[in-house]
Design a protein around this nucleic acid. Structure first.
Lengths: 162, 162
DNA sequence: CAGCGCTGGTTGCGCGAACAATCACTCTTG
DNA sequence: CAAGAGTGATTGTTCGCGCAACCAGCGCTG
């Protein structure tokens, strides 16, 4: 089954399996390890870190709840709860939106910024050591283009026809 | 690390971001979509499908609980519960290990094999349509080699040193 | 400006997974 | 062969998440 062509059969080729299951395993291993790093050194899970990162980079250090939910790949309710926990820990605070009384902002606090500054180093070092350092620059470009193709398609609903 | 050298700073380059966050997003989108496919068309989640697949391919159509847990990236207890549910649904059954009375096998049932045969087509089509079709053969090879490098390293504990 | 659909956000609920403790059994070792 | 260390699997508990239901406020329409 040298070429992959005729084998749209009942199983994947070795090459396809390596690419596909490799990604699943790599993702699992990476997120688990990076999450453990943050938890151990700064006491926050990866999701909280990502929220802090987005808020810190956002104008006025704040974002709307919905935008934040989309950005961190969480459901609306999931983000509500996450923000609850982070607010309880003083990492951010809610802020009402004056132009739309329904809306709410999450704004990162000075404490959150301080924690982020430290966590950012940890996380970045982890991402480099565990992932980027194993992938040459041109490979990174290729990966990036693959993701864009994959995401561009999966954004549009399901398998659809065929 | 040619051009990226000096930038081991406090943030990732655009290229690095594209490769890294792209993977996170692609993984999330893919697993979510593939899980939804299976759930909608066959009533089983992705994790159950993977268990069925492994059991079907295993000698005697059975595997030890621990091996299964490792293979599907689940904790021991998580797998125990998953096997509970699948056994309740008749997709597999537990079997005691005669060489070690502590051990247990999970063995796929005829019903499980039947369901798998159908689900396999759905899942394979999904993986191809959503992922593999967007990645050329030589890119798949390159991805595979990247995953091996990443996993080979992360398998050995933490960041550690050499 | 009253009525009504729509949107942003929060809450009730259930599920799936991990961690720690536990049980059952095996394998040493004296 | 009895005692203790080690291993395979299960159970108790907790947690984070998504879905569905909900409430509040916006904005259109007549």
């Amino acid at each position: 089954m040298a070429t992959t062509s005729a084998s749209k059969s009942s199983s994947l080729s070795a090459r396809e399996l390596r690419a596909w299951r490799g990604m699943l395993r790599a993702h699992a291993a990476l997120t688990k390890a990076l999450d453990a790093d943050l938890e151990a050194q700064h006491g926050i899970p990866l999701t909280s870190y990502e929220v802090l990162l987005l808020l810190a980079d956002a104008p006025d250090h704040r974002m709307r709840m919905s935008d934040l939910a989309d950005a961190v790949l969480l459901s609306r309710s999931g983000l509500t709860r996450l923000v609850d926990r982070m607010a309880r820990d003083g990492l951010l605070e809610r802020e009402t939106c004056d132009s739309d009384a329904r809306g709410a902002y999450a704004r990162i606090t000075p404490a959150g910024l301080t924690l982020l500054a430290a966590a950012r180093r940890t996380h970045l070092a982890g991402v480099r050591a565990r992932f980027l350092d194993h992938v040459a620059a041109d490979e990174q470009d290729l990966l990036g283009s693959c993701w864009e193709r994959v995401l561009g398609d999966s954004a549009e609903d399901g398998v659809a026809c065929g």
